Amino acid sequence: MFLCPVLVYCIVFVFMFVLSPVFLFVVCEFCALYYLRRLVVSFSLVYCSCFHFAPPWEVFCFIFLCSVFPHCGCFCSVFVFCIINISVNPFTACLRLGSSSVSARTIRRHLNEMKRYGRRPRGTPLLTQRHKKARLQFAKMYLSKPKSFWENVLRTDETKMELFGKAHHSTVYRKRNEAYKEKNTVPTVKYGGGSKMFWGCFAASGTGCLDCVQGIMKSGDYQRILGRNVGPSVRKLGLRPRSLVFQQDNDPKHTSKSTQKWMATKRWRVLKWPAMSPDLNPIEHLSRDLKIAVGKRRPSNMRDLEQFAKEEWSKIPGERCKKFIDGYRKRLISVIFSKGCATKY
């Protein structure tokens, strides 16, 4: 009589690491020993949690049913286990049961059923926790600013344009076997055939001056560019000089001691800008528009590139600039909602 419970206990303990907890629940339900049933249930829950990756709320359901209904709790646990893990998501049930013969096509199909589709990841700036914190503080600080404040901000930035850059060319629609016709090709040259750096600015009323940077721009060159272009741009755009806010990114030429000292003599109010935040500067969209417009004209030399760039910059409508400024508050809300991470802008 004493060997019978011990034998049953050994058999159950051995099968604990081989069979599914569902089978163990059925066995212990028909087992006449009350304490042995409780012991089997305990080992089954541990097995289910450790080897079948059951969420804690499922384990809680099993413990609750076994405690409230000691005689039929195991059967109820089997029913709950089957409903949760098989009826709701058969794909997850197969993975939990240790199936290793799931094809990649099956995985993709089930991911598509769960509204998960394969897409190429978007490129975003590398943001550290310090960057995210600074972006979040900036968004919270300026969220309550009125629209009139942003309309008097002069936004500036530099952009590089290649003579034969391919990033701004649009899609070509052609017939079959016409891929290498001249009208369907884009000429390419090593290193883009040369490039030029441009400094530009804009406000809510339109675009300001666009200046070409000669050679490698240093702090002194940057100061001379600002001296030549900021004043005429302010007068052209009708900004109020006394309440003017100057915006620039954190490029070393912009934040050097000599540049800061030079700006202090001009008594400019400089907007404190968070690093790694191109999505907060609408001038990035205008730079892209400029590259697309110049690329369509296909300049053949550096002189044409500079001329076309200045012409297309002046053609950007003021309504587009105003649209960016009017919707700027949405950018700040987006940064707050994403807790300082990159946004869709």
Rank of each mutant, 00 (worst) to 15 (best):
K160E: 12
T92P: 00
R224P: 04
N281S: 11
R135Q: 06
L95K: 14
K291L: 04
E284W: 05
L65S: 09
S101C: 06
L143T: 02
R38E: 13
L226S: 01
P252H: 01
T171H: 14
C209R: 09
N112D: 00
E29R: 10
K183Y: 05
L3M: 08
C31L: 12
F149W: 15
T92V: 07
A204S: 15
C82L: 11
K147R: 11
Q307T: 10
T171D: 11
L19Y: 07
S338H: 14
S170P: 01
L143W: 01
R96K: 15
C4I: 08
I225R: 04
Q307H: 09
P121M: 04
I83W: 10
S205E: 10
H169N: 09
K190S: 15
L305Y: 00
P299L: 00
R240I: 07
S287R: 03
H285G: 07
Q214S: 08
Y328C: 03
S314I: 09
T159N: 13
A342V: 03
P274R: 10
D251R: 08
P21C: 10
S20I: 13
A203H: 05
S44K: 01
N250V: 06
V68L: 15
D221P: 02
S103Y: 03
C4A: 11
I283S: 02
E182L: 15
I316Y: 03
S338D: 06
A293P: 05
S233Y: 05
K236S: 14
T185K: 11
D304R: 06
A342W: 02
K145C: 13
A32R: 08
G73A: 06
C94F: 06
H71K: 10
G123T: 08
Y117C: 05
R122Q: 09
Y47M: 13
L210T: 02
D251I: 09
V18L: 13
D211G: 05
C28A: 13
T106R: 08
S148T: 13
P252Q: 02
I11Q: 09
A204M: 08
G295C: 14
L65T: 08
H168E: 15
